[in-house]
Amino acid sequence: MEKLKVGVIGAGKMGLLHSGIFNSLDNSMLKSVSDKDRFITNAIKSYLPGVAVHQDYEDMINKEDLDIVVITTPVFLHRRMIEDSMNQGLTIFVEKPLALSGLECQSILNKNYNKPTLVGYCRRFMETYNLAKKIIDSEELGKVNYFTSHMYVSQIFRQGKGWLYNPKMSGGGALIDLGSHAIDLFHYLFGDISTIHAFAKTVFNKEVEDYLSANLLFEDRALGSLQVSWSIRNYRLPELKIDIHLENGVITVTEKYITIYSEINDGLIKKGWTTYYKQELKKDVPMNIAGPEYTLEDLHLLDCILNSKKTICDFNEAAKTNFVIDRIYSSIENESIEKMNYEV
């Protein structure tokens, strides 16, 4: 089988990561990279003579014979790049979040695009969260009553520099950059949200929130809370920790481990406490550069292309996170309790 040809827009950290992964997988190859920064494109030219380099992404998607486009640029550029890639009929992978706002997502969804799409909410590909999903979906511990959660990292303790801290370019602060992972995972684990009440605080950045607290009521009546911040000291890596209280037990899950407390002895689950570390739950991947989840994500996209399947986080699914984020920001701005309306 001929390899699927990949073009990457944006050769930053995530762009290089996906370039490397797709280039090393059996069914795909890196064909082209585009980036405005000549420094990086010239470096790619000198070290990867087989990869076509463009300064302008439109040149790349118009001129190169590509199957997949990978968009890893700042979020304010996503919508235009996605819509241009749709016009070329490409399979589209875009790093999270899908777009700046629900309005932009609506524009993307209105195209009714029927090629595979995937948004890089990588926690869907981490085995600890997937085990939590399996237990919740099986209802072996009953229904979810309540959860608390935090998403923290030590990133900002002074005014941040760059597009990430300009709301016109980023869509917001800690919530959209970091907390979007949590919101997406809530959709994956708990389903749709019905009601939101949130507060935020700005300390280090002038224009975007550094701390945020949200209460969420789900359509199946589960109640949850989320604390998000990129200004929590001593969190070297981002951590999304969720304590999930079910009818017959408790699940605590992070990127690194899952602890299950069960009051029943049933099938997969033993009565009492059980902890699994990611090291024990691992899945083999053909290439691991910065975590197996990124490879699993890219393999999933290839599998969906080759077998004509929908991905588990396509544009419709990922847009839901943008819609929720919009409502959280409305709740903060208007000091209101917001009803969710997924315009998907």
């Binding site: 490397g20 992964i21 290439m287």
Partner: peptide, 13 residues
């Protein structure tokens, strides 16, 4: 991360 990225892109140089 450096080794494996260079390896994935097969940058012998």
């Amino acid at each position: 991360v450096s080794t494996d990225l260079l390896l994935s892109l097969q940058i012998k140089n």
